[in-house]
Nucleic acid binder design. Structure first.
Lengths: 231, 231
DNA sequence: TTCGCTTGTGACAGTTCCATGACAGGGCTC
DNA sequence: GAGCCCTGTCATGGAACTGTCACAAGCGAA
């Protein structure tokens, strides 16, 4: 695997340099941008595998930049980690909802940053990049955020949607509740494992009126599996 | 792939518990040891895929433990991550030179620990880590947790599944009931040896409708063997 | 053959695991 | 603020699984 390219968008040179230094030492290829305008220009030719975006930027907030990236087809898959000086939960949530894949609060250690970068890259990697996933009669269009079975549209809550999306992009594999929490809820949430059961149930309840088979299967003692073949 | 086994060697119960909790949630199988002596004992029956070793232990430094593990043929491949309270670069180097595959400084976040564990395991994974085991007409796919003979899928309970998986990955070898308890049930469970008989029977009962030969064979006075050649 | 020991088998009770419905709190919209 | 949706947690009931036992069957040696 070639070195992953990371684009840093940060106006303070001191921080940029420090981060860039740390990342280069860790084997990443690093590009820098001072503001959103420059960032946009760089994205095209650099095609970064991941972006680090400062919350506060001179021309436009990093959150906006992120949001707009996530809206555009050709950039939405680039994972974004927000750098923020504000520690308030409020902002963190905002960062994630804006489409950031993770956030990290200044001051942070190079090590913490590296850990998060690795985690985010790993999470992003296996995704088949496909926008539409289909299985059996089920169809999930990630760009429009719609799920349908045949002609009928299926309404799902946010969590059920993410869960289904994860399952459909990783079919025929068993995931433990813990793994699902990590990969669907996100690595640093603390939620009971049983909660997964409940959302599985909600997902099934939403899907099964439209389907003949049970696509989300229980594997006793192991977890759940999405499969079009019957168990 | 079955859950990876991780052995934690750490004398402080609080830390051990916290780490174990996080790891279990992430889908790992966790065993614990308080000191080097106990660790050595556990290694034999647990056969961990990775070890987390505290730097400071009551009976011997974790560094020494690591060093000695790396010197022994049968344990040298087990990746080791050192947990250390000392942040000095000095020690980090020492840890790595001692043969540790990575180190992490307390306090660390669960996420960081997970990231490092995954990184280390990925590095250690022997490239083509086969998820699928086949023998005769039998096929066991560990990632989807399915067992099948030809087209037909075979339903197994958790214990029978683990038992079969163990047998299929260790064919043509006789295991005593005690060994099976150690390696299938786990090193520190207390169960009657005759219980193994019962599960063997359940496994046979599940398999034999689909197979011509008896794959799980009894070796009188010694134990059981999985073999495609008839006895 | 008979005895002694090992293994197979069916039954059973306790436990664990999972599905399900209910519910309270939080956030958002109007 | 009222109403609505979403979320996480809990209690419950039932199904599946587990470990043990008692007895039957098998095997080997004398």
């Amino acid at each position: 695997m070639t070195a992953k390219r990371i684009l840093i968008v940060e106006d303070e040179k001191a921080i940029r340099d420090m981060v860039a230094f740390g990342l280069r030492r860790a084997g990443y290829e690093v590009r820098e941008a001072e503001d959103c305008r420059e960032a946009r220009a760089r994205i095209v030719d650099v095609r970064p595998d991941l972006m680090l975006v400062d919350w506060m930027l001179p021309d436009m907030s990093g959150l906006e930049l992120t949001r707009s990236l996530k809206r555009a087809k050709d950039t939405e898959e680039i994972p974004v980690i927000m750098l923020t000086a504000r520690a308030e939960e409020q902002d963190k949530v905002g960062g994630l909802e804006g489409g950031a894949d993770d956030y990290i609060t200044k001051p942070f250690s190079p090590r913490e940053l590296l850990a998060r970068i690795q985690a985010v890259l790993r999470r992003a990697a296996p995704a088949g990049a496909a926008d539409v996933v289909e299985a059996d009669g089920l169809r999930l269009d990630d760009s429009s955020h719609r799920v349908s079975a045949g002609e009928r549209e299926i309404a799902l809550g946010p969590t059920e949607y993410r869960l289904l999306h994860f399952f459909m992009t990783h079919p025929e594999r068993v995931f433990s509740r813990g793994q699902l929490l990590d990969r669907v809820w996100g690595g640093n949430t603390y939620v009971e494992e049983r909660t997964v059961d409940v959302h599985i149930r909600r997902l099934r309840k939403a899907l099964e009126p439209f389907l003949l088979e049970r696509l989300v299967q229980t594997v006793r003692g192991a977890g759940y599996r999405f499969s079009t073949r019957d168990a």
